[in-house]
Design a protein around this nucleic acid. Sequence first.
DNA 1: TGTACATCAGTGAACGCGCGTTCACTGATGTAC
DNA 2: TGTACATCAGTGAACGCGCGTTCACTGATGTAC
Lengths: 200, 200
Amino acid sequence: MRYGKEHKQATRQRIIEAAGRRFKRDGIDGSGISTLMTDAGLTNGAFYTHFTSKDDLVATAVSDQLQAQNARIVAQAAPGRAGLEQIVRRYLSAQHRDSSDDGCPSAALLDEIRRCTDPTKQAYTDGVLMVIDGIAARLAPDDPLSVRTKALGAYAMMAGTLQLSRALTDRQLADELLEQGIHNALALLGVEHGHSSPAM
Amino acid sequence: MRYGKEHKQATRQRIIEAAGRRFKRDGIDGSGISTLMTDAGLTNGAFYTHFTSKDDLVATAVSDQLQAQNARIVAQAAPGRAGLEQIVRRYLSAQHRDSSDDGCPSAALLDEIRRCTDPTKQAYTDGVLMVIDGIAARLAPDDPLSVRTKALGAYAMMAGTLQLSRALTDRQLADELLEQGIHNALALLGVEHGHSSPAM
DNA sequence: TGTACATCAGTGAACGCGCGTTCACTGATGTAC
DNA sequence: TGTACATCAGTGAACGCGCGTTCACTGATGTAC
């Protein structure tokens, strides 16, 4: 089968996105090449016409996941400082906690990324900086760099809270933790808010 | 070889502790039984005289790790509210970041635990509650339950911060994140503090 | 316009390897006499 | 006290299986004439 030049690119992207989902669901170590390719509607052999190794895909998928997260934030939250509370409430929602394959790659993969190769950690670092620079620009449009570390701290806090909420077997405690996390995140970011609004 | 009854218990404990370290270093999926047993100075076959399955060991090791974390906190920090700042500064130190095999099991394993079997998640939940109830008791000795969620939120925040600091390739940014994390944790816990003390 | 050929994305079987688990066996020690 | 035996923690080879990776092959399409 021979296709136009855009076909291979589209297939590659399909593999990357399917892999991102699968990694977030089953972990990187827990996702085999055959499974990833089946997810993308292909057989295992085709993998190496798109990537040089599993590591190569991992780095690419991690990067893609963070770009997607950034795009989601831009698309779904009101611009500027006003959108910050939306971002926090959406991130620390029960819905996000209960659907990790569609969610934040950091919350799903952070401690596995620590053990990955340098290119993957580099891709992760670059991707996170893109996301948090977006947040910093909302916090202080005139001087985003001055609040970069603050944004990074808030991102770390939100990821840790979501992870812990996912790991607890006590559902009520997990829900309380999310509420506490929203409160904490808004406090750390210095965003005004009512005590709690039930939807979004 | 036949030994006294305390011998098998001691061997079992040796496997559990070696496994805890190895899991934190290479991940649960990334640690094979043979490696774990070699770490403990034994051969793979002996594993099943101590545990019914790898899952069984994982749940046991997770529980043991959190008990050890709790014991470390009790042993190394001043009692009561006074020790809270020590706990935070020690947790979010460059030393802790750079030696994950000796460190916090939550920071090393949180998103892998999410994917584990229920007994492991239950062991994790129980263990975390033990640790955070200790923190809650320091925060409000007269009514620890009232600050349980607050303590849980602070724990989640610290774990997420340590994880992110470990995953970043930019060392300077990782260091700044730890500083920010200390600031954030002390703020969330309502602990007074100077701007930054270089050691401890 | 019709035909022969080159391209190359994708197939599917196979590779060596390490996984979790099983099991027949070993041999140092505690116990019985 | 000395000897024969029972115990059982630990050994090490083997099991089927899925891993990451390789490779000879297929066959639909674009291109050349």
